[in-house]
């Protein structure tokens, strides 16, 4: 039991991941899809940070009295990934704006309906 609960941060990651994924698949509204996609990506950020965390560890700055440091690399990586995520979201939103201009709607099925 402790094992399962002790890994709660992974559960959070998986819950977020599945939520985001489900939204992307099931929603027809493009904005909601973008939101889902962002949640999906965010879950991965949390996964990376979890990997780097060392229990009882501190920020990796050499100072007296600290022996245990967290791994900084995943945090650094995820900084890049966050930038990528923001860029993706902005490109996606820009596309949604263009789609709305062209089709007067952001509902996926209505868009396909118009192009038939």
């Amino acid at each position: 039991m402790a094992d399962v609960l002790g890994l709660y941060n992974y559960w959070v990651v998986i819950f977020l991941m599945m939520t985001g994924f489900y939204i992307v698949i099931s929603r027809r509204n493009l904005i909601k899809k973008v939101i889902g996609l962002s949640i999906f990506q965010t879950s991965v950020f949390l996964l990376y940070i979890t990997i780097g965390k060392v229990r009882g560890g501190t920020a990796p700055i050499v100072a007296d009295g600290f022996e245990v440091y967290s791994n900084p690399l995943p945090s650094v990586l995820i900084l890049t990934a966050i930038v990528v995520g923001v860029a993706t979201a902005s490109v996606a939103l820009a596309l949604v704006v263009r789609i709305r201009e062209a089709y007067e709607t952001i509902e996926e099925d209505e868009i396909f309906e118009q192009d038939r």
């Binding site: 999906f40 990997i51 996606a92 596309l95 949604v96 089709y103 996926e108 868009i111």
Partner: peptide, 25 residues
């Protein structure tokens, strides 16, 4: 039609890339 096509590609591509990111992690 290019717009929804690009959006669809964006969604699929991002999912794919995120999968790769998870794998790398």
């Amino acid at each position: 039609k290019a717009l929804p096509a690009a959006f669809q590609y964006l969604v699929m591509g991002t999912i794919g890339a995120t999968f790769i990111l998870i794998g790398i992690g």
